[in-house]
Amino acid sequence: MAADPTKLKVAKDLGRPDILFALARRKGSEHVFVGGSDFKLYDVDLAAAKPEPKAVGEHLSYVTSAALAGDDLLVSGGYDCRLNWWNAATAKPVRSVEAHTKRIRMVVASPDGKLVASVADDMACKLWDAASGKLVRTLEGHEALTPSHFTSMLYAVCFSNDGKLLATGDKTGRVCVWNVADGKRLAQLEAPGMYTWDPKQRRHSIGGIRSLAFSPDGATLCVGGTGQIGNIDHLDAPARLEAFDWQAGKSKLVLSTDGKHKGLLEQLIFSPDGKWVVGAGGGTAGVIAFFDIKAGKVLFQDAAPMHVHALAMNETGDKLYAAGHNKLLVWTL
């Protein structure tokens, strides 16, 4: 039966003492690796009646992201600027690389598992050979400073389903689309609505592009974050998605959750058939929303039980795995 976002239901809810930022799911399984504010990575079998997280290893600071390259290679990144490779099957460390000069924000693996991409506050996107851990290429196209002279941050990265494209998005709302094969920049897009700089009252910013996703056909690029906030002391604006026809360099539409559901979209994932894209995140409370890009509307939105920092989906698109504030969660739809 096809997934129905309106039937969204919490199937499993695991309380956690920590804040989870990283989530990687082993294909075709209920096995996830999570990591977060206690600096550690855990292996969790969500199929178990009472899942018991097993420690895999640790970073020197918050674990911000993790990805599985193929079935057995787990790559994690953190605020310690390091990328750590692990054997997912044995939970043994493979290598540790001082990958960036500043905090690593996100790590993704190419669909074929051969490449790993990482982004960090040094504003570089680095492509790594998953198997050897060798740096393949560094992609540089994001300004180090914001227009208001503060250091910028490079939060988000994603591959297209065919693995040929890579997109990166930063704090000020700039998006770059790259050709993976030769590292050429194919497009540069601007989503300034994601940048929440307050020039007068508070003189800082808290938003930025936090998530990216290509449609299955690679034609549409979705960007997730939050909308313009009046008082940036809080994540107090509806969550925001902007969709681009990236080849034409054009913004197609902007969709926002309603006033009840606020915060950042921390992760975006397209359904396998491309009919919708799900975004999850939050502020003080969690938010999950399903967007129909073609129809230009929000299909369904709801409060998530926690602020979600990372999201994964099963192959059939009817199950979601979420990691976030003091919780690990499974949804069915």
Partner: peptide, 21 residues
């Protein structure tokens, strides 16, 4: 007076701008 440090949301991002300054 340097304001505004009231980081009820995104404390770490806020301080990442304000503390280095």
């Amino acid at each position: 007076g340097r304001g505004w440090w009231d980081s009820h949301g995104e404390n770490f991002e806020t301080h990442l701008e304000l503390v280095p300054e």
